[in-house]
Simulated scan of single mutants.
Amino acid sequence: MTTLRCAVLDDYQGVARELADWGRLSGRVDVRFLDRHLTDHDALAAELADCEIVVVMRERTPFPAALLDRLPRLRLLITSGLRNASIDLAAAAAHGVTVCGTPSSSEPPAELTWALLLGLARGVVTENDSLREGGPWQSTLGADLHGSRLGLLGLGKIGTRVARVGAAFGMDVAAWSQNLTEERAAAAGVTLAASKEELLETSDFVSVHLVLGDRTRGLIGAGELRRMRRTAYLVNTSRAAIVDQDALVRALREGWIAGAGSDVFETEPLPLDHPLRTAPNFLGLPHLGYVTRRNYEGYFRGAVEDIEAYLSGAPVRTLG
């Protein structure tokens, strides 16, 4: 039996090997793990030239048609989660490449949303840095959650979880999206905002939980940011392109809003000279929303299951 070759991409933390039993593939698949991020198509094509199987982490490494064209040996492409907008599914099908997903949980990104929101509201990073560096003892004035309004753009699985926590904090929770109905909002225990504009104008905290698409790309631009209260905070753990990045930098520098937190960026890793790195009152994280042990175990164990199913001739969790 010919041994197939598999590459696991973007294993930043070097944990993929230990979080799943890759030994189940021994003798059938030779697996290697890459902890460095490759953005150049020439480098990627060279690295993956001998691979029949590739495992990708979320949307870290896109697989457009131009890259798939250069990987004639590729037969199975596995993505963590059950959706990946950075894979050209039509091109994959045209090349005879099966695309599969893995289990994924909505709890971790909802939890991280609150890490950002609380970090902003109580100046956690500023106060911690001051304490460690011997600076002033108390320099910020926290924003209250209890009694304030939490506005959610999107009320899917993650948005609904965030809403429940907001209610537990005693917040008035409202939501808006283009397809959200009063019935769906009521079922989640939140108020349906009359419009996106009304949500932005009346909320003390705004959190983004929408899927990126033609209707949501650039949904929050300069006009929308100006509608927000100067004391309000914006948090985005969804997709960076939903919020105009240039407008966000300007809003922070000119004080249109009190602060912003983001776990997502249009270019990742974020370039060293990106203006958000030095924007005032900005709390940024390196796309950690889904990065938890349990979620990663689901990803990599799911990848092993996908490979075994493919080898048996009955692939599971296929996309496209």
Results as ranks from 00 to 15, higher is better:
R5M: 07
L9Y: 11
D10E: 09
D10M: 03
R17Q: 12
V29L: 10
R32N: 08
L34W: 11
D35H: 06
R36D: 07
H37L: 14
L38M: 14
D40K: 07
D42L: 06
A43S: 13
A43L: 13
A43T: 12
L44Y: 02
A49S: 15
M57W: 07
F63D: 12
F63Y: 14
L67M: 02
R70Q: 08
R70G: 04
L74T: 08
R75A: 06
R75I: 08
I78N: 04
D88N: 03
T102F: 07
T102M: 12
T102D: 00
S104F: 05
S106Y: 11
E107V: 11
P108Q: 04
P109H: 03
L118F: 12
L118D: 11
G119P: 04
G119Q: 02
R122I: 05
V124R: 05
V125N: 00
E133T: 15
Q138L: 15
A143R: 06
A143W: 09
S148T: 15
L152V: 14
T160P: 00
A163F: 02
A163D: 09
A167W: 02
A167Q: 13
F169R: 01
D172H: 14
A174D: 06
T181S: 15
E182A: 15
A185H: 08
L200H: 10
F205D: 09
G218R: 06
L219T: 09
L219P: 00
G221D: 13
E224Y: 02
R226L: 11
R227L: 15
S238F: 10
A241W: 07
D244T: 10
D244I: 13
R250T: 15
G255V: 01
A258W: 04
G259Y: 04
D263F: 00
F265W: 14
L270F: 14
H274P: 00
P275W: 09
H287D: 12
L288R: 02
L288G: 01
V291L: 14
T292I: 10
E297F: 10
A303V: 13
E305A: 15
A309W: 13
P315D: 14
R317H: 13
T318H: 01
T318R: 07
